[in-house]
Computed example of a mutant assay.
Amino acid sequence: MDLDAYVVANAHEWARLEQLVRAGRLTGPQGDELVDRYQQVATHLSVIRTAAPDAEVVAYLSSLLGRARIKMLGARVLSWRAAGRFFTQQFPAALYRLRWWWLGTTTGSVVFTGVMMWWLVEHPQVEQSLLSPQEVDALVNHDFESYYSSSPAQDFASQVWINNAWVSALCIALGILGAPVFFLLWTNLSNLAVVGSIMTRHDRGDLFWGLILPHGLLELTAVFVAAGVGLRLFWSWVEPGGVSRAAALARAGRTAITCVLGLVAVLFVSGMIEGFVTPSPLPTWARVGIGILAELAFFAYVFVLGRQAAAAGHTGDISADLLEDRVATQS
């Protein structure tokens, strides 16, 4: 290959990528162009390394691609096309491919909570060791119900969204260690079981479920998904499956990041329900119905759209265009 002719033929592509990298904040179309130019230049680098490995040209293109990748991570946020791909392909595919991890976590958590709640109802002396009679009376007759209207709806929704997103992020971030995931689940589920058993034993079970179910179905499902993804992250380095532990962990970690970003949106929906629907004057059946519809919509999203995305080859990993230069710079 005539390297000089190749450089002349493609120099305008490199110059345009350089312009985009040096530009300020990019618009959506410019962000899309940045991704396209990145792929083109990565291909050029691969060709040069294979056919005419000139050290100066390779160094320049490698540096340009490195700077473009950093720029791209910010520019892609502004791309509606990238956002659409994320929510119709990457995120649902990740949820579908990891379904057995989070479905198993969900099943185990529901069984654990149910058994613990039943045991606490049958052993009222435990309640007496946890709360004083005055605290139980306040919880049953006032505190539990008033909690959901303790702040303006928009403020309350924001608070629970941030809190639940933080818990979910912790489940994934600490999942690499395994044990912290079970501790986080224990902390949240034991609190639910204790409050539920107290409300049930004092004949306020209808109030408890009427306030928990509207938002709790989707909210807890999101937490269980995060826990399952965290445990999968742990398992990726325990049993890497034919690749190095570093490669398996990196792949699982990238998919986990996809899940974190997607769950922020899921928890935003549950936060809106908790802030505006749960404390609303709607009849209980209507509030619970909204919660059930939101949960069914999530499962349809995973098992219809996610299944289709997975069948089309999407994995939930970072898009191939962001990994392209890793292949192109191999020797």
Rank of each mutant, 00 (worst) to 15 (best):
1 M>E: 10
6 Y>F: 11
6 Y>H: 09
12 H>Q: 12
12 H>W: 15
22 R>H: 10
23 A>K: 11
26 L>D: 06
28 G>F: 07
33 E>L: 15
35 V>C: 05
40 Q>C: 00
49 R>V: 08
57 V>K: 06
63 S>T: 13
64 L>F: 04
65 L>P: 14
66 G>Y: 06
72 M>F: 09
75 A>Q: 06
77 V>I: 15
79 S>T: 13
80 W>G: 13
81 R>V: 10
83 A>K: 15
85 R>Y: 05
86 F>T: 03
91 F>H: 05
98 L>V: 07
99 R>C: 04
102 W>F: 10
108 G>V: 14
109 S>Y: 05
111 V>N: 07
111 V>R: 08
115 V>A: 15
120 L>I: 04
124 P>Y: 01
128 Q>F: 10
129 S>C: 05
131 L>H: 02
136 V>R: 04
137 D>R: 12
140 V>E: 03
141 N>Y: 10
145 E>V: 15
145 E>F: 05
146 S>G: 09
146 S>D: 14
154 Q>C: 09
157 A>N: 02
161 W>M: 08
161 W>T: 11
164 N>S: 12
165 A>M: 10
165 A>W: 03
167 V>P: 01
168 S>Y: 00
170 L>T: 04
174 L>R: 10
179 A>G: 10
179 A>C: 08
184 L>S: 01
186 W>S: 10
191 N>T: 13
194 V>H: 00
195 V>D: 09
195 V>P: 05
196 G>A: 06
199 M>K: 01
204 R>A: 02
204 R>F: 03
209 W>G: 06
211 L>C: 04
223 V>P: 00
230 G>K: 01
231 L>P: 02
232 R>G: 09
232 R>D: 15
232 R>M: 14
233 L>A: 04
233 L>P: 06
239 E>R: 15
243 V>Q: 10
245 R>G: 09
246 A>G: 05
246 A>L: 15
258 T>F: 05
260 V>C: 15
261 L>T: 05
263 L>P: 00
265 A>M: 09
268 F>S: 04
270 S>M: 06
271 G>C: 04
273 I>P: 00
275 G>Q: 03
282 L>P: 01
283 P>S: 11
286 A>G: 04
293 L>N: 02
299 F>T: 01
302 V>N: 02
312 A>G: 07
313 G>M: 13
313 G>R: 13
316 G>I: 07
318 I>R: 11
324 E>L: 13
324 E>H: 08
325 D>I: 11
326 R>F: 13
327 V>Q: 13
328 A>L: 09
328 A>Q: 03
